Computed example of a mutant assay.
Amino acid sequence: MQQFTEWTGYPHGSGPARSIELVTAELASNAVRHGSLAGRDFRLTLLLLPHGFRIEVTDTRPERLPPPVTAQPPEETSGRGLFLVEAYADGWGCTARDAYTKTVWAEMRFRTTGS
């Protein structure tokens, strides 16, 4: 995530960069898999906050809210994405502000590197 590296000074492959990449990938893949309608895309927004970083993914299925996070049985081959988001993020949630979109967000705290 070049933008994260530029904003924070953390190098590619560092722990914080890998955590941001994982959470971003999970939220984006959920938008593609569960939140898309034909002919519509999702929007990814990255925000540098005073205390960390916020990832927002907005899709076109406000009626499909994220399910509660529960551990999946070992034999299940999917359904662990939000479990990972919850494990890596300091906070996450979902906001549906209108009848056409919803935004799933995650915030992760870190210290700046001074770069």
Rank of each mutant, 00 (worst) to 15 (best):
P67V: 03
E63F: 10
D59C: 06
A89T: 10
P73M: 06
E86P: 04
F53K: 04
Y100R: 14
T77F: 12
V57S: 02
T58G: 03
T95P: 03
E56S: 07
Q72H: 03
A89D: 02
E63G: 13
R61E: 01
P68T: 14
T77Q: 14
G79I: 07
D90T: 06
P68Y: 09
P62M: 08
R54D: 13
D59W: 00
P66A: 02
V85S: 01
G81S: 04
R80N: 09
E56W: 05
A89P: 01
A71K: 13
C94Y: 02
A96G: 04
T60H: 10
A87M: 09
P68I: 06
L82P: 00
T70K: 15
A96D: 01
A99P: 15
L65K: 09
A96R: 08
T70V: 13
A96Y: 02
V57C: 06
V85D: 00
Q72A: 04
Q72T: 11
P73R: 15
T60S: 15
E75S: 11
W92H: 13
G91C: 07
V85E: 09
E56L: 10
A99G: 08
L65I: 08
Q72K: 13
T95H: 14
V57A: 02
D98R: 11
A89I: 05
G93C: 03
F83N: 13
C94F: 07
W92V: 00
Q72S: 03
G81P: 11
D90A: 01
P68H: 10
E75K: 14
T58C: 06
A87D: 14
T60I: 03
G91Y: 07
E86K: 13
A71H: 13
P73W: 13
F83Y: 10
A89M: 05
V85Y: 06
R64D: 00
P74I: 10
R80E: 11
V57Q: 06
I55C: 05
D90F: 08
R54L: 12
P74D: 14
G81Q: 12
Y100G: 02
E76M: 07
S78E: 08
Y88Q: 07
E86Q: 15
T58H: 12
A96N: 07
R64Q: 11
S78V: 03
T77R: 15
A96E: 07
L82D: 01
E75T: 05
R80D: 10
G91M: 08
P74C: 06
A89E: 04
D98I: 09
C94R: 11
E76I: 05
E86I: 00
E56Y: 06
E86H: 08
E86T: 03
E63I: 05
A89C: 06
A87I: 04
L65D: 05
V69L: 04
F53V: 03
P68A: 14
L82E: 00
Y100C: 04
R97A: 11
P74E: 15
R97H: 12
S78R: 15
D59M: 01
R61D: 02
R64E: 08
P73K: 04
L84P: 00
A89L: 02
F83W: 07
A71S: 08
G79T: 05
V57P: 00
R64H: 13
S78N: 15
F83I: 02
A71Y: 09
G81T: 00
P73V: 12
P66L: 01
R54K: 15
Q72N: 07
A87V: 04
F83H: 12
G91I: 04
Y100F: 14
W92D: 00
